[in-house]
């Protein structure tokens, strides 16, 4: 078996150690004897929808956003929408998550239109939602507890057809109001969690990888368990700290 991963805008959307997610997917696939190819796709390069099984989009700074929106408007945004509709697996973090949505409205009313691949929108708030946090993914996303770090001023609201990735146990999540965190639509997994997300949340990582394998290889077998001692220690440390802190 083989999976092709496309890392979108790795030179711009790389704010919070997002590289760790790519490293983790690669290592956990290779540990099971599954071949992995990783390709980077940035400004001015077109994406190959058919070739790739997983698309990864990280978070970035406002400074480069203009460059990014220009590039998305030149065609890549439309391609991403197509890939989402075809059921390709997406993992989008923070700024990358917001970008898949309909728009971002700043707190003083300016609206930035995004690509609308999923029906969510984000409203800027004056106060940042920042800190270690924790949520439980819904049963449809594996039902595991995810620990991470969130740092966003945008409040994201889910529209019709979009489910949350999980429900907040500690912290803010999507907007600090409705307890939802992240988004699921078809095979899109979106979240505010960096940290990096996947290394210390191996259950979620494997769920995402299995989703991609099951789509590509009809009814793929469950992934064989790995030695996750270090992964679980890092996970459990933060879970404990958040429960008792």
């Amino acid at each position: 078996m083989e999976l092709n991963i496309c890392h979108l805008y790795p030179d711009i959307l790389n704010l919070y150690g997002d590289r760790g997610n790519i490293i983790t997917m690669k290592r956990r696939l290779e540990a099971r004897g599954i071949k992995v190819n990783i390709e980077e796709c940035s400004i001015g390069q077109s994406i190959d929808i058919d070739k790739h099984d997983i698309f990864f989009i990280g978070g970035g700074q406002d400074f480069e956003q203009e460059v990014l929106l220009r590039d998305l408007a030149a065609g890549k945004g439309r391609d991403i929408c197509t890939a989402v509709e075809e059921g390709k697996v997406f993992l989008a973090i923070c700024g990358g998550y917001q970008m898949l949505g309909q728009y971002y409205k700043t707190w003083d009313g300016n609206q930035l239109d995004f690509i609308g691949a999923i029906n969510i929108h984000t409203i800027g708030a004056k106060e940042r939602m920042i800190g270690n946090y924790m949520y439980r993914t819904t049963p449809e996303s594996g039902g595991s507890i995810v620990v991470g770090f969130e740092n966003h001023s945008g409040k994201t609201y889910l529209g019709e057809d979009v489910a949350p990735l999980g429900m907040v146990l500690k912290g803010y999540g999507n907007n600090g109001e409705d307890q939802t965190e992240g988004a699921r639509y078809k095979n899109v997994f979106a979240t505010y969690s960096h940290g990096s997300l996947l290394p210390k949340n191996p259950a979620l990582c494997d769920f995402i990888l299995h989703t991609a394998l099951a789509r590509k290889y009809d009814g793929a077998e469950p992934l064989t368990p790995l030695d996750d001692t270090l992964e679980n220690r890092a996970h459990d440390y933060m879970e404990e700290r958040l429960r008792h802190g």
């Binding site: 919070y16 590289r19 770090f149 940290g195 290394p199």
Partner: peptide, 9 residues
Amino acid sequence: GTDISWIWD
């Protein structure tokens, strides 16, 4: 810094 994600960079 309370956010340690930078170690992945």
